[in-house]
Design a protein around this nucleic acid. Structure first.
Lengths: 146, 146
DNA sequence: GTATTTGCAAATATTTTGCACAAAC
DNA sequence: GTTTGTGCAAAATATTTGCAAATAC
């Protein structure tokens, strides 16, 4: 898409595109299985290499390892995530909801545009937090009733 | 310690003890290396098996995978964590600080004893969150200045 | 004596890497 | 034509598991 990469590659385009087409926050295997029927000469290694490239370039955000597999989000707007410990489902936490969580955090400037998702770094406990990598773990409603 | 396990084991005791003795939120390898000089006939598999047992029994909390390694906390009082993306350092987030974060979350009962760390499950976005597994990712001050 | 725990090594699962070939520019 | 990207297989890494021997009760 953008020309930040050294050379153009159809497979790289396809990998980013399929990531952007979903809100399931998938891992490498999912991307591979989704693309393999369309791009027969695709290898899993290429998916891994490009996912890492995207992360380094800031085109995707890693949500960490869920059930042994690293999960990614191609939406890089500042937002946190909630992860179900049982089924591994990952859902977005809207900037507005997060703002409600954080707007009264001591030291956080009340006048900031956080509620408008304009800020993604906050100071907390001597850590500079990237809110996009912040994960709340718990149980989704489906797994809770079981 | 407690008799919830089927049979007593000195090695199991030692593994839980060394976990409780530190605030570094270590992984299996760290526990193994710490104990190996003291308990020569200790195998890494035993550490893994007991860590999983502790987690199932609720004696330790998993903080998820940091730099490819699962990290644990033997303090099971409700508290969240902040993790440095670069060096992997894990720090505790006190119940009071977390309460500041959450006390104005819409729908969260203002009268609850959350600030006293008496509550560790919160409802958010259709997820029931276990705050002990909640992780804020970012940069610690040491890594930020570099 | 029976059931559980452990050492050890092999198996598993995910991700990374080396290298020859292909594609991009 | 040089540089970058990819397929493929092997390697690396963390964790789990099978099984016989050891330990707990």
């Amino acid at each position: 898409m953008l020309n930040r990469y050294r050379k153009h590659s159809k497979k790289r385009d396809a990998i980013l595109e399929v990531l952007k087409s979903t809100d399931t926050h998938p891992g490498a295997q999912w991307v591979y299985e989704k693309l393999k029927p369309v791009i027969p000469y695709l290898s899993l290694g290429t998916v891994y290499r490009n996912l890492n490239l995207f992360r380094e370039e800031g085109d995707v955000v890693s949500l960490g390892v869920v059930n042994g597999e690293e999960r990614f989000d191609a939406c890089t707007l500042p937002h946190a995530h909630v992860v179900c410990k049982v089924c591994g489902k990952v859902s977005d936490l809207s900037g507005e909801t997060l703002a409600e969580l954080l707007e009264n955090y001591r030291g956080f400037p009340k006048t900031s545009a956080f509620g408008k998702a304009a800020l993604d770094l906050i100071e907390i406990h001597n850590f500079t937090i990237d809110i996009r990598n912040t994960v709340f773990y718990g149980l989704c409603n489906d797994c809770l009733v079981k």
